Computed example of a mutant assay.
Amino acid sequence: MTALFRPGVYCRGIAMGAADVVPGVSGGTLALITGIYEELIATLGGVRPGLITIWRRQGFAAFWRAGNFTFLISLLAGILTSIALLARLITWFLEHHPVPVWAFFSGLIAASIPMILKPLVRRGPSQWATFLAGTLAAVAISLAPGLQGAGAGPLVFFLGGAVAICAMILPGISGSFILLLLGLYEPVLQAVRDGQWSLLAAFAGGCAVGLLSFVHLLKWLLSRYHDTVMALLGGFMAGSLVKLWPWRIGDESGLGEHWLTPHQYAQATGEGTQILIAVLAALLGMAVVWLLSLAAPVHNVAKETTD
């Protein structure tokens, strides 16, 4: 009998949803950390019109199994639950206690990088070059200036959703941060708060189109060049640490940020250096990765055939 719900995947969805709310943190990173990333890519890449044929010829149960829909439904339910219940809490912590929050995510990602790279079979010049390229790309994205999103309509929401969803499934590149760069982060949150369903429907449509288009390419790359792609994703994660530096403040425009030393941060905000709490939060993030690695070690759904 086909299971209709996977509690473990649901919990991982909650973690992904919480990460996607935070600009600078990628839900794809949490998928990698919790060991479901490659199953996610393989499952999304398997959503195709041919599933309808399976339904007609073999029945609904075969269709459901072929599409791995129990996995998708459980994961999506966790993500939506997290966004609905944790978005306000996370944004409150980011507003009132940003240093420990960013330090926690920094520790989470820093501890994840060696865990992602350790299982790789190939570690030659091409993998290290790809890792470096991914790091530089993520740093460039992290330092890019934002855009204004005033007056965004359904078409802008659609295109923004298509671009952001591609980033959301790439570890180290935050979909929320891409929305910030496009000037759509606040408009999207405002649409959620105000129940602007036409804009949200356009955004969701863009996400669906972008996801189903991009994931097939990513699935093919993982099947052909698994270790090189994973090295690239590890580089994305390493580069994202620039964006997660805990001691920073926004500039006057509200679109950029200034990276500071703890002492400079204390002088600018009057809140103290918070070094000890930042270290403890980073260690907590590392401990979470270690616990997750014990509960759900990273596994390979796509095997490398050539590199």
Rank of each mutant, 00 (worst) to 15 (best):
P7Y: 12
G8W: 08
V9E: 11
V22L: 15
S26M: 07
I41M: 03
P49N: 04
T53W: 13
T53K: 14
A61Q: 14
F63S: 08
G67V: 11
F69C: 03
L72D: 01
S74T: 01
I79G: 05
S82R: 10
L86V: 03
R88F: 03
W92V: 00
F93W: 15
W102K: 13
W102P: 01
F105E: 07
G107M: 09
G107A: 07
P119Y: 10
P125N: 10
A129Y: 00
F131P: 02
L132R: 01
A133G: 13
G134T: 04
A137N: 01
L147H: 14
A150M: 03
A152T: 04
P154Q: 11
V156I: 12
F157R: 08
F157E: 07
A162Q: 07
C166W: 05
G175W: 10
I178H: 06
P187V: 00
A191W: 11
V192P: 00
L199W: 02
G205M: 06
A208C: 10
H216C: 01
S223K: 10
L232C: 14
L233D: 04
L233W: 02
G235F: 12
M237A: 12
L244D: 08
L255D: 06
E257M: 12
L260A: 08
A266C: 04
A268T: 12
T269K: 09
G270R: 12
A282W: 10
L284R: 01
A296P: 00
A296L: 04
P297A: 11
N300C: 03
T305S: 07
T306W: 09
D307L: 13
